[in-house]
């Protein structure tokens, strides 16, 4: 990215305010607490985008949870990352055999990454495996995956903030916004 990002001016529109996100995360936390009451839950955050969501969500869950982190390479990654096949860059550090696992995602669009991840995690024999995503963009879906907890269903626009990036920037915005098209047109 040669152009210098401008956090204040690169956002065309705020799609979800900080207050809206907070309220929804609290609601999701309540639901998850009820659904998993009395069970052993492991939250698996998919790096890097889901970090803020994970941090907020886990504090809204009122039952004991373990957390773990995973990172999966993305198509079009750097030359050193892109081997032509998806791979696990950061694997689980704990054993999920027999545990209830909830995968925490920032956004689901094509479903390709999650499809791969779910196949991988199923191989580790969890007692249950479900998905919680902050954002769902169904218009982009290629692989249909049942999503158990959805924060917001959003329109087909390129969004940034609250963990979501463009060129690794904008993750630290406290809201979810739409990036001005000129920003990525400049990079094209």
């Amino acid at each position: 990215m040669t152009r210098r990002a401008d956090l204040a001016n690169d956002v065309a529109e705020v799609l979800l305010t900080e207050a809206e996100i907070t309220a929804r995360v609290q609601e999701l936390g309540r639901r998850i607490s009820e659904d998993y009451a009395g069970r052993e839950l492991t939250l698996v955050s998919v790096l890097k985008g889901s970090l803020p969501f994970m941090a907020d969500l886990m504090r809204e869950i009122a039952i004991p949870v373990q957390i773990d982190l995973m990172e999966v390479s993305s198509y079009g990654g750097t030359a050193t990352e892109n081997t032509g096949l998806v791979r696990i860059l950061k694997d689980l550090s704990s054993n999920i055999d027999g545990r209830d696992v909830l995968v925490v995602e920032d956004i689901i669009d094509t479903g390709l990454t999650l499809n791969y991840l779910m196949r991988y995690l199923r191989g580790k024999n969890p007692a249950s495996l479900r998905i919680c995503t902050l954002l769902d963009k169904p218009a982009r879906r290629l692989v249909e995956i049942p999503v158990d907890y959805v924060g917001f269903t959003i329109p087909d626009r390129f969004v940034i903030g609250y963990g979501l990036d463009y060129g690794e920037i904008y993750r630290n915005l406290r809201f979810v916004g739409v990036l001005r098209p000129e920003v990525y047109a400049d990079q094209g």
Binding site: G76, D156, Y184, Q187
Partner: peptide, 15 residues
């Protein structure tokens, strides 16, 4: 849709 896919993967220049 294809353009959006390439944007997602940082390959917009290919679009």
């Amino acid at each position: 849709d294809f353009r959006a896919l390439l944007l997602k993967y940082g390959k917009l220049a290919l679009a």
